[in-house]
Design a protein around this nucleic acid. Structure first.
Lengths: 133, 133
DNA sequence: CTTGACCCTCACATCAATGTCAGGGTTCTA
DNA sequence: TAGAACCCTGACATTGATGTGAGGGTCAAG
């Protein structure tokens, strides 16, 4: 099948499929006219790639697990892939660190906001005091 | 004072100071030789800009609050600035959304990992079964 | 007069995956 | 045979703040 059908069946853009190829995640054949040719295996691979990207892995992560057969069956039916597992575990840790950093940021911003609000409240009280005098 | 001293006193890079200027957050004078000239006010402003950036606001956020006098005193002693307050509140919401998105991602990745691990465990049991036969 | 520490502008690189052009070829259908 | 719908490559844009380098002035101390 050609790239448009592949993309449609995998729920990704044609651009993305070409990008995956450029990143050496897939290697389609070529027809005589230069068009890329994909088989059913490609459907599985591209779906897997998309799913892994969507789960927070990077193209680089996925590339590390290629040529290990880890992308050529539906992920749910191919549980044995230590490399993907390890990378995913690392990625989970990185994700946790990013979340922690964001929550730290949130804490600082919230405290700043709170301090500002209470300072404004105090200022209004002062004004009220002045009025009541 | 010149840009090097300003940057040192504010704990930011010279590059960042020039970037703030390019973004119209500061507007230093120029000496006869073309060197930027900063006064004490600039120290306060640059420190405030850096602190706000560090708190998760963007240059665009900060720009919206300029010309309101919100950057010309230490933030802790200038609590009355509704615009900064509103922007910061918005930013807090955005931060919460980003955190939620990351946590969602984390959940998906963790589930995938868990499923993979338990599938591997099942596979090992199967192997054990085969051995025990 | 030279060295070194400053300063200037301009501009590209970073990170990641994808969108979106431009400029052109192919294939199928009416 | 024309037009629609597809395909190709190549390249720039996006986001945000900063790093870095080239190529070149300015100034003070030695």
């Amino acid at each position: 099948m050609r790239i448009g059908e592949l993309a449609r069946r995998c729920g990704v853009s044609v651009r993305s499929v070409r990008y995956y190829e450029q990143q050496h995640l897939i290697a389609p054949g070529r027809a005589a006219n230069g068009y890329r040719e994909y088989d059913e295996l490609a459907v599985v691979r591209v779906r897997n790639i998309h799913e892994l990207l969507d789960s927070g892995l990077t193209v680089e992560d996925i590339r590390l697990s290629i040529d290990k057969g880890c992308l050529d069956e539906p992920l749910s039916t191919l549980p044995r892939c230590p490399d993907v597992l390890r990378v995913a575990t690392d990625r989970l840790g990185a994700l946790d660190r990013r979340i922690a950093a964001l929550q730290d940021l949130r804490g600082r911003l919230a405290r700043q906001l709170l301090a500002t609000r209470s300072a404004m409240a105090r200022a209004e009280e002062t004004v009220a005091d002045e009025w009541s005098r």
